[in-house]
Computed example of a mutant assay.
Amino acid sequence: MATVTDTTSTPITDLMSTMNAKKTTSTDDVSADTDKFMTLLVTQLQNQDPLNPMDNAQMTSQLAQLQTVTGVNKLNTTLESLKSSYQSSEAVQATNLIGRGVLVDGNNVTLAGSKGVLGVNLASDADDVKIVISDAKGNEVETMDLGAQKAGVTPLAWDGVPDATKLDSSGKPITLADGNYTFKVVASRAGAALTDAGGLSLDSVASVTTNNTDGVKVNLSSKGALTLADIRQVL
């Protein structure tokens, strides 16, 4: 006959208690600190010299210290709660970006089916902005003249038609071959070159990662893990 073990025995109970031990909350920590402080203060009062008791200034000072410690602990608890809430909200926001195209800092543009997407990021207004595109060998194949542009992000579509436009037998422009190209942003204001103008590359959000150390990260198909702040525009 099989023997049924009594699961209410002390070893099993002790094991379950250990595995399901009640975690100490931040509020408990604050209360514990307060209790310790009050215990020390009461002990000090009970053992003080009757002929030289603690004056009101000392008492007030120690109570003020208690309030300060308690307030700082409560503030830390509140900040941790706000941080957790913010990360949760940021994670939900990032999840909605999965599968979307985004513009991030970069100088690469991919031409596919005679279509490419790139962007310009200007920290200040510019009188003249040009995009100089080069092929894999470093040869400049096209210059896009954007004229004057306001500060901010400007997405651009590229048709792959080179500066030295050639026509096919039907009279249509011959576009560049599909592939990867690089570009640079040349911007100026009042004749002086701007150093705060940068290029933006198209990428796509593949997944989202969340952890306590690095917070929320969006994993892009080409650039890898970046923060939400690294995304200049969602397309």
Rank of each mutant, 00 (worst) to 15 (best):
residue 111 L to D: 04
residue 139 N to A: 06
residue 152 G to V: 07
residue 152 G to C: 04
residue 117 V to M: 12
residue 156 L to Q: 11
residue 110 T to K: 05
residue 120 V to W: 06
residue 169 S to L: 14
residue 132 V to F: 03
residue 149 Q to E: 12
residue 122 L to E: 09
residue 117 V to Q: 06
residue 138 G to R: 05
residue 170 S to C: 07
residue 173 P to Y: 11
residue 119 G to K: 09
residue 137 K to G: 05
residue 147 G to V: 09
residue 161 V to Y: 15
residue 132 V to G: 01
residue 142 E to A: 10
residue 142 E to G: 01
residue 172 K to H: 10
residue 148 A to R: 09
residue 138 G to C: 01
residue 141 V to W: 05
residue 137 K to H: 02
residue 110 T to M: 03
residue 158 W to I: 06
residue 148 A to G: 11
residue 141 V to P: 04
residue 132 V to K: 06
residue 155 P to E: 10
residue 154 T to V: 10
residue 126 A to W: 11
residue 153 V to L: 09
residue 140 E to W: 02
residue 159 D to Y: 11
residue 112 A to T: 08
residue 134 S to G: 00
residue 133 I to N: 01
residue 142 E to Q: 09
residue 137 K to D: 03
residue 108 N to C: 00
residue 123 A to E: 15
residue 168 D to Q: 13
residue 150 K to A: 14
residue 111 L to H: 08
residue 114 S to Y: 07
residue 164 A to L: 04
residue 166 K to A: 14
residue 168 D to T: 11
residue 125 D to H: 04
residue 134 S to Y: 00
residue 151 A to R: 07
residue 143 T to R: 13
residue 170 S to A: 15
residue 159 D to L: 12
residue 146 L to N: 12
residue 130 K to S: 08
residue 172 K to W: 08
residue 114 S to M: 07
residue 150 K to M: 09
residue 117 V to D: 05
residue 120 V to H: 02
residue 111 L to Q: 01
residue 115 K to E: 10
residue 128 D to W: 02
residue 109 V to P: 00
residue 159 D to M: 11
residue 135 D to A: 01
residue 171 G to D: 08
residue 122 L to H: 07
residue 126 A to P: 13
residue 113 G to K: 10
residue 109 V to S: 03
residue 137 K to P: 01
residue 165 T to L: 12
residue 135 D to S: 03
residue 170 S to K: 13
residue 162 P to Y: 14
residue 142 E to I: 04
residue 172 K to R: 13
residue 112 A to W: 00
residue 170 S to E: 14
residue 168 D to Y: 13
residue 109 V to Q: 01
residue 147 G to W: 07
residue 147 G to A: 11
residue 165 T to E: 14
residue 115 K to R: 11
residue 147 G to F: 04
residue 135 D to I: 00
residue 132 V to M: 03
residue 163 D to L: 12
residue 156 L to H: 08
residue 148 A to T: 08
residue 155 P to M: 03
residue 131 I to M: 07
residue 162 P to N: 12
residue 117 V to F: 05
residue 131 I to E: 04
residue 124 S to Y: 07
residue 128 D to H: 06
residue 108 N to Y: 02
residue 133 I to Q: 00
residue 128 D to A: 06
residue 149 Q to K: 15
residue 128 D to R: 05
residue 165 T to Y: 09
residue 171 G to E: 09
residue 127 D to V: 03
residue 134 S to R: 02
residue 163 D to I: 09
residue 145 D to E: 15
residue 116 G to L: 02
residue 134 S to F: 01
residue 172 K to F: 13
residue 127 D to L: 07
residue 111 L to G: 02
residue 172 K to Y: 13
residue 148 A to W: 05
